[in-house]
Computed example of a mutant assay.
Amino acid sequence: MTPDSRPDGHSLDFRFPVPGGVRTANGWRVAWTGTAVMGIVNVTPDSFSDGGHHLGLDATLAAALAMRNAGVLILDVGGESTRPGADPVPVEQELGRILPLIRALVEEGVVISVDTMKPEVAEEALRAGAHLINDVTGLRDPAMVEVCARAGAPACVMHMQGEPRTMQLQPQYGDVVAEVHAYLQARADEVMTAGVPGVLIDPGIGFGKTLEHNLALLRALPQLTAGSHPVLVGASRKRLIDFIADVPTASDRDPGTLALHLHAARSGAALVRAHAAAAHVQALRVQAAL
């Protein structure tokens, strides 16, 4: 956890035991103060910034545990790239990538999120011991809502215009801030009404948005974080940093990522999702002290 000087606390509710959780009347709750870090653990060969970097279970597990040991709150495991233009991955292939890592992480007692758009993958991942579903489609598929509700698992609801293969072709909005905020609040309420015990909301930086759209959403974060649902911001190594600072190689964008995520923390974000997770923990702690 990375507490900062903001008085606001954040929490997620589960209907099953979770590492670091406290028993409540309706299940278990993980609570923290300030902005915590969700560490990205990709087990894909084609992720936009670190595809193929952690090939092999031992290497991936070591990288994940290094994040945990640095103070990351949640590890987000992904087996399918959602970069612009990405093609879908078959269910069995995605499961084959993520299940060995999930089972290994369960033994280490960490909070595990699974980055997937597929209800079948989510169900098997939760059965294997994962705790949270991070769905870039905002749980559009009713089966995904059913999976999370039945398992008692919270979910991250993200805004995305279109789908990964086409989302960056010609994104258009009348008022991007009003439209994205309204969608997230309404969708979060719908998902919880359907039985999902807890929800994170994510404005979906880089998902069906131009540079101007992304900047408008980042500047308006205080409006979004003033709502009732904890906010996750994931701008790690994204193309807007290249547009702003001329950094064409994704793996070179960590300084720009830190700048964006420190802004998100000052704006009240509950979580930031990052590749350079340990560096984020350090930076957030220093910012909190200031």
Rank of each mutant, 00 (worst) to 15 (best):
G20M: 08
G21K: 06
V22R: 15
V22L: 14
R23M: 14
R23K: 15
A25W: 09
A31C: 14
A31Y: 12
T33K: 15
A36Q: 00
V37D: 00
G39L: 00
G39F: 00
V41M: 10
N42I: 01
N42G: 08
V43Y: 05
V43G: 03
S49D: 12
D50V: 03
G52C: 09
G52M: 10
H53R: 15
L55Y: 13
L55H: 15
L57D: 12
L57E: 13
D58N: 10
A59S: 15
A62G: 12
A64S: 14
A64Y: 09
A66I: 12
A66C: 10
M67V: 00
G71T: 05
V72Q: 02
V72L: 05
V72S: 02
V72M: 09
L75E: 10
T82D: 06
G85F: 04
V89G: 02
Q93I: 12
L99I: 15
P100M: 13
I102Y: 03
R103Q: 15
A104Q: 05
L105T: 07
E107K: 12
E108T: 05
V110K: 04
V110F: 09
V111Y: 09
S113T: 07
V114T: 04
T116L: 03
V121S: 09
V121K: 04
E124K: 09
E124V: 08
A130R: 13
I133T: 01
V136H: 04
L139D: 00
R140Y: 11
P142G: 12
A143L: 13
M144Q: 06
V145T: 14
V145Q: 02
